[in-house]
Amino acid sequence: MQPIILYGAPHSLYTGKTRAYLRKQGIFYIERSTADPRFRNEVVPAIGRGIIPVVVLTDGTIIQDTVDILDHFERKGVPLTAYPEGALQRVLAHIAELYAVAGLTRHAMHYRWTYAKEQERFLADAFAPVSGGASAGQVMARMQSYLPMLGVTPETRSAIETSYETLLDLLEAHFADHPYLFGGQPSVGDYGLLGPLFAHLGRDPVPAGLMKTRAPRVFRWVERMNAPDADMPEYPDYPAGFLTGDTVPETLNALFRHMADELFPELSDKVAMLRDFVDRTDPVEGSPVTAKPHQRIVGTVATRFRGIAIESGVQPYAFYLWQRITDAFAALPPASAERVRAWLDGTGLSPLLALSVPIRVERRDNIEVWGARADREP
């Protein structure tokens, strides 16, 4: 059997999400780094930017972005779907997927780069093989330069660390009784959270030490997610698959309230900025969201994290993930939609359904493009 090729890196957030999925599904793959000449000579020209992860299928098809990669295999049929059938479980899985990008990336980047000196040797060793023509130090310095755009500043340091310790405690309480978010099978929410909780927070020496000492069950979940099997001997007779009856464990109530506190008011402020941007620029449907493929933001916005003023980059990709929540909700029958809305009301997440995003963001040819305006007739 010919393997697919996964271009990625051990310390890459999104590669970790993709790799875990391929392992769980038993998909035969070989991982290569971005230093491989085929990545530079074949993959980058095909997708227009140097970004990972990228999967090259056996027929030569190139797929970039974890959502597109996972959805490709989901459409083909896999042993363990990442999408729960239950309405509430599925919407919450998409919310966790959004939070991993729009919220938890801040914590991951903080612990990696604020503590760069304390874990310098580990990071230099990680970045050296994939730095290409630049030195590992140059690549690391570029990564550190993104911190202010993520709201990582000396003023927010304490709040970020308190927030992360709270998250660990909430996850620890959940994994005391359940191997995955929604039972005995990982969802897109699990895979999403794994990205930052493995590649940065579960491997880099400083945050990994914190996770092991404060939340050992969370660390076991990280190991479990990277295993090719269910890997849950701590839960005797725990049933395989998602919990039946669209059950959501009570331990998730506090966890998703925490996510709401992290996502808002930042997402509200970003919607307002996007609305102004769309009014000023009137993007053409199908056009790239940024002038250059490697650019990930369309501007910045003044907002707040845990009550502290920050300047945060507005990333169209976050709106793409947000749409997965609203699209899943829009497809529900009325009774299911009412139950989901009530649950979100109780955890402070209902603004995800109430806020009007002015334009869709789509994915075409491995980049984000503008979709239809919400204020225009189709």
Results as ranks from 00 to 15, higher is better:
residue 134 A to H: 14
residue 347 T to I: 10
residue 20 A to W: 02
residue 269 D to Q: 04
residue 122 F to D: 04
residue 210 L to S: 07
residue 186 P to L: 00
residue 374 A to M: 07
residue 173 A to T: 06
residue 281 T to S: 02
residue 187 S to C: 00
residue 129 P to M: 08
residue 112 R to L: 10
residue 319 F to Q: 08
residue 171 L to W: 07
residue 152 V to F: 02
residue 110 H to F: 11
residue 220 R to N: 10
residue 350 S to K: 12
residue 8 G to W: 09
residue 30 I to S: 10
residue 137 G to E: 14
residue 79 P to H: 05
residue 43 V to G: 05
residue 353 L to V: 08
residue 189 G to C: 02
residue 96 A to H: 12
residue 14 Y to I: 05
residue 298 V to L: 15
residue 94 H to V: 13
residue 141 A to Y: 09
residue 1 M to K: 11
residue 303 T to E: 02
residue 361 V to C: 10
residue 83 Y to V: 09
residue 175 F to R: 07
residue 191 Y to S: 01
residue 189 G to A: 04
residue 277 F to W: 15
residue 158 S to E: 13
residue 125 D to Q: 15
residue 186 P to C: 01
residue 216 P to Q: 09
residue 207 P to L: 06
residue 32 R to C: 06
residue 38 R to Q: 11
residue 309 A to F: 00
residue 157 R to H: 12
residue 247 T to Q: 05
residue 25 Q to V: 08
residue 245 G to A: 02
residue 27 I to W: 00
residue 119 Q to V: 06
residue 325 I to V: 15
residue 27 I to L: 07
residue 186 P to M: 00
residue 294 H to Y: 07
residue 260 A to K: 04
residue 232 M to R: 10
residue 38 R to M: 11
residue 323 Q to V: 04
residue 312 S to N: 07
residue 99 Y to Q: 10
residue 351 P to L: 06
residue 255 L to Q: 03
residue 173 A to M: 05
residue 69 I to R: 13
residue 367 I to S: 00
residue 12 S to Y: 08
residue 331 A to L: 08
residue 371 G to K: 12
residue 224 R to H: 14
residue 291 A to G: 12
residue 247 T to N: 01
residue 90 R to E: 04
residue 21 Y to F: 15
residue 330 A to H: 09
residue 80 L to A: 01
residue 337 A to P: 04
residue 16 G to M: 03
residue 178 H to R: 08
residue 368 E to F: 15
residue 129 P to I: 08
residue 93 A to P: 06
residue 54 V to L: 09
residue 185 Q to V: 04
residue 168 L to F: 13
residue 17 K to R: 14
residue 19 R to Y: 02
residue 210 L to K: 13
residue 376 R to M: 12
residue 113 W to R: 07
residue 325 I to Q: 00
residue 377 E to W: 08
residue 1 M to R: 13
residue 238 Y to T: 01
residue 320 Y to M: 05
residue 239 P to W: 02
residue 352 L to W: 02
residue 253 N to D: 12
residue 163 S to Q: 10
residue 306 R to I: 01
residue 369 V to A: 00
residue 297 I to F: 11
residue 287 S to V: 10
residue 359 I to F: 00
residue 230 A to I: 10
residue 201 L to G: 02
residue 93 A to C: 08
residue 220 R to H: 13
residue 52 I to V: 15
residue 82 A to P: 03
residue 106 R to K: 15
residue 238 Y to I: 01
